[in-house]
Write a protein that binds this DNA or RNA. Structure first.
Lengths: 273, 273
DNA sequence: TCAAAAGTGTTGGGAGTACACCCATGA
DNA sequence: TCATGGGTGTACTCCCAACACTTTTGA
């Protein structure tokens, strides 16, 4: 192989190389409310991911994250990702960050594809456009047992599940590496992308303000807390939670009532300059 | 542009696309000792980065991170990075992790190149091979002022410096994005890669055991503390530091003396569970 | 003898945990 | 009236910052 650009260019012959393509794949994450029978209870929150149903050959009837090929002559990866995001949500101002570049050599049997994955967070209520083949899946269950994480997703009509092996990487490394355990429903390595994405959000929620990208302008502290709880996958104590987020939110004089219990003040996000 | 693989493949014509290439660029980081005059004092530690001098046209006499082109038909990005690492250090068991994928569209004026960058941590004392054109640069100064980070590097003969603008990304985002402020010495966008890499290490040192990849088998707690201090760029208090790392290290019965002050026990890394 | 680093004990404050409690609502 | 969530006060624990202090060495 060529080590320097000089060498590379000197020997550059397009036909000698197998063609290389890149895609961006985006995990668009939001939070949805599950309606509940008891008039007193608050609605249960769940994380949801936007998936697209494929109808082309090797992946017929599988679901995958929205994605698109990079056009190397006109756009950057981020621009490519934004283009996909616009196509799927019709919005341009969504929070988005690069997640990881995945490139298992056989991830697509037809082409050598390197995929740069992104995470996007959005308030589902902002979306109005129905996109062909796209559907929101709620994460109705996450179980972790002996390093195997099992996810169950549902879009109301169809239930899919898959499991991923989560291992600490060898030799005083840091985080986890993921490996498919069982996956019949998602195309490519998108099971891994989703797990890595959820892990990232789980970490970041503690030291950043990213949650507010999934909230509307006004929200109750109970709502906010339930979003935290579903992302962290654990119950939080009310007083503790309120103290922690106290300086990130601003109380308004609006209230929300009519819910079978004491009404609550609405808050809004307070940017800490 | 094509949105799905199906569309893409149907229209696939290699000549229509500008060729896309990928490289891996690796920030190989280590810690070096600066000899000191006073026989009592311990040697000052500094972070060092391995840079390669270029002698090809557009970058003649500029320095850059070691890197290499991906061969799409035979290797993954990680394998490509390991190949580069082996070439530069002659070692195969170095700690390495993916950093970020950079792809400014004009980062290389001759080709559309997407670069996937990696960080590698190594104990400099393990290296014996001299590599042509490669040289270790010590970070002799880091200054941050009004969002501009200025780095000064020296390899003993040559001093280079550059500065990078560090901004919080818009709209309740999380971390920083970097942008070149002034850079006459490094090729491509490697100033950004270095800053992003240092930032990553600085964060990770607190919640992982990555430091030990830069340490020899046996070390004193003073040495270890000084490595933390140079990475975090601040002084730590001895008792606090010892408590924090207490369960990560194991005391041995070896000692190091002959240094003009009380000798110290040597410790080794203790893998947790 | 003494400067420098090795190494340890003690105290105080701030953050998170846990629990107890009261308030307001609509069916 | 009462189940339910909204909302607040307080006591306790644990971690870490800060400081004080002793020990050991080579020139």
């Amino acid at each position: 192989m060529y080590s320097t650009e000089e060498e590379f260019l000197k020997n550059y012959n397009p036909d000698e190389f197998e063609k290389l393509s890149m895609t961006t794949d985006i995990m668009i994450l939001s939070v949805s409310d599950q309606e509940v029978s008891n008039y007193r209870k608050t609605s249960k929150k769940m994380m949801s991911i936007l998936l697209v149903k494929r109808d082309d050959f090797p992946y017929k009837n599988k679901w995958c994250l929205p994605g698109g090929f990079l056009n190397p002559s006109t756009e950057t990866l981020e621009e490519c990702a934004r283009r996909v995001l616009k196509r799927e949500t019709n919005l341009s101002d969504i929070y988005m960050e690069q997640l990881y570049t995945f490139d298992r050599i056989d991830r697509d049997p037809r082409l050598r594809v390197v995929s740069c994955s992104y995470i996007a967070l959005v308030d589902k209520k902002r979306l109005n456009q129905e996109v062909k083949n796209a559907s929101w899946f709620d994460i109705i269950d996450i179980k972790e047992d002996k390093g195997i994480v099992r996810l169950t997703l549902s879009n109301g009509k169809e239930i899919i599940d898959f499991s991923v092996k989560k291992t600490l990487r060898k030799n005083s490394s840091d985080r986890y590496s993921f490996e498919t355990d069982k996956n019949d429903s998602l195309a490519f390595d998108h099971d891994i992308v989703i797990l890595a994405g959820l892990e990232r959000i789980k970490n970041k929620i503690n030291y950043t303000d990213i949650v507010f990208n999934m909230m509307g302008k006004y929200f109750t502290l109970g709502d906010l807390q339930r979003v935290y709880e579903v992302i962290l996958n654990k119950k939080l104590l009310d007083p503790a939670f309120r103290r922690i987020i106290a300086d990130k939110v601003e109380k308004t004089d609006k209230m929300r009532g009519g819910e079978g219990h004491r009404p609550s003040y609405l808050y809004k996000y307070k940017k800490s300059e």
